[in-house]
Simulated scan of single mutants.
Amino acid sequence: MSESRTLPPEALDAWADAACARLGIDRAALSVPLVLDLARDVAHGVARPAAPLSAFIAGLAAGRAGGDAEAQREAVAALTALANEWAER
Rank of each mutant, 00 (worst) to 15 (best):
S2Q: 09
L53C: 05
L38A: 10
A28H: 10
T80H: 10
G45N: 13
E10V: 13
W15M: 15
A75K: 02
P8G: 09
R5K: 12
R22Y: 10
W86N: 12
H44S: 14
L23E: 06
A29M: 04
R22A: 11
L53D: 01
W15R: 15
E3A: 13
D26M: 04
R27A: 12
G66H: 05
L82R: 01
G67D: 00
A18E: 11
P33N: 13
D17F: 12
V32Y: 06
A29Q: 05
D37N: 15
A62V: 00
L12E: 15
W15N: 15
L7Y: 08
L34M: 15
E10Q: 15
A61N: 00
F56G: 11
S31M: 02
D17Y: 10
C20K: 02
V42G: 01
D41E: 13
H44P: 12
A18H: 05
A16L: 14
A83F: 06
E3D: 13
A83D: 04
A71N: 02
I25R: 08
A47E: 01
L60T: 05
L38C: 11
R5Q: 08
L38Y: 08
A43D: 06
A62G: 01
T6H: 14
C20W: 01
A62E: 02
A11S: 12
R64G: 03
S31R: 00
A62N: 00
A28T: 01
T6L: 14
A47S: 05
A19W: 05
R64H: 11
E88D: 11
T80C: 13
V46N: 05
A28Q: 03
R73A: 06
S2M: 06
R27N: 10
V46E: 09
D17E: 12
D17R: 09
A75R: 03
R27S: 11
A71V: 00
R40P: 07
R40S: 10
T6M: 14
R27C: 07
I25M: 11
A43Y: 02
G63N: 03
A50W: 00
G67T: 06
R48P: 04
A16N: 07
S4K: 08
L30N: 04
M1K: 13
V42N: 02
A75I: 08
E74A: 14
S2A: 07
R22H: 12
R48I: 01
A78I: 08
A19S: 05
A21Y: 03
P9A: 11
A19M: 04
A47H: 07
E85K: 14
